[in-house]
């Protein structure tokens, strides 16, 4: 039998994340708090954002201007984003005051923080591709600050095509990958215990 890189990857993945950790049956008793619900609420809102955004992408960027169903789907996309940002920020508050980077969870914290920043960029480009006076106003306000940093040569907020590509492809891909990475890290390390509590099997 010869060893292969696929086998090495499988053995590494199973060692780091055995099935009982990936899909656990029980959780520590301290998880019985509403503050622990906001992470999964964020993921749920993100699914609605991605599905409604996918429908908008399928139908094209002009659809929601001329169709009642299009306006409805656009509204679902907008309000699910509002919900996503709100519950994500409450999740962030909860984890910040819990010092959730404790117990070798720094990478979990950092992937969440970067996902938050990428979400802001995604929401920003979303406002830029509304194709209305609002998006024109926001582009006009944003260009000076962005040009002052020198990024304007590569990231032109008045270029509708470029902003649309960032909004529907590059940034959602980044959020998706960061979210999967973040959730897998939560499964690997377990949820962070409240300050003063001890995680099962931690011994501290």
């Amino acid at each position: 039998m010869t060893s292969s890189w696929t086998g090495a990857v499988r053995r590494y993945a199973l060692r780091r994340l055995p099935s009982e950790k990936l899909i656990p049956e029980t959780q520590p008793v301290y998880m019985a708090s509403w503050i622990y619900v906001f992470g999964v609420l964020t993921v749920s809102a993100l699914v609605v954002v991605l599905v409604s955004g996918g429908v908008l992408a399928l139908m094209g960027p002009g659809w929601w201007h001329v169709s009642g169903v299009g306006r409805y789907v656009n509204s679902v996309h907008l309000w699910s984003v509002q919900l996503f940002m709100a519950v994500m920020v409450i999740h962030l508050w909860g984890k910040f005051f819990m010092a959730a980077w404790r117990g070798r969870r720094v990478l979990t914290w950092m992937t969440g923080a970067v996902a938050f920043l990428v979400s802001l960029a995604t929401a920003f480009t979303g406002y830029l591709v509304q194709q209305n006076f609002d998006s024109q106003w926001i582009s006009g306000q944003a260009k000076d600050a962005l040009n002052a940093t020198g990024i304007g040569a590569w990231f032109n907020v008045f270029d509708f095509g470029q902003m649309l590509m960032w909004h529907v492809l590059l940034l959602p891909l980044a959020i998706g990958l960061l979210s999967v990475w973040h959730i897998l890290l939560v499964r690997v390390r377990g949820i962070v215990p409240p300050i003063g509590a001890t995680a099962p099997g931690d011994g501290r």
Partner: peptide, 14 residues
């Protein structure tokens, strides 16, 4: 609303 929700999540029994 967000601050209210945050405080409620900390205080309300689960």
């Amino acid at each position: 609303l967000m601050v209210t929700l945050f405080v409620a999540a900390l205080l309300l029994p689960f």
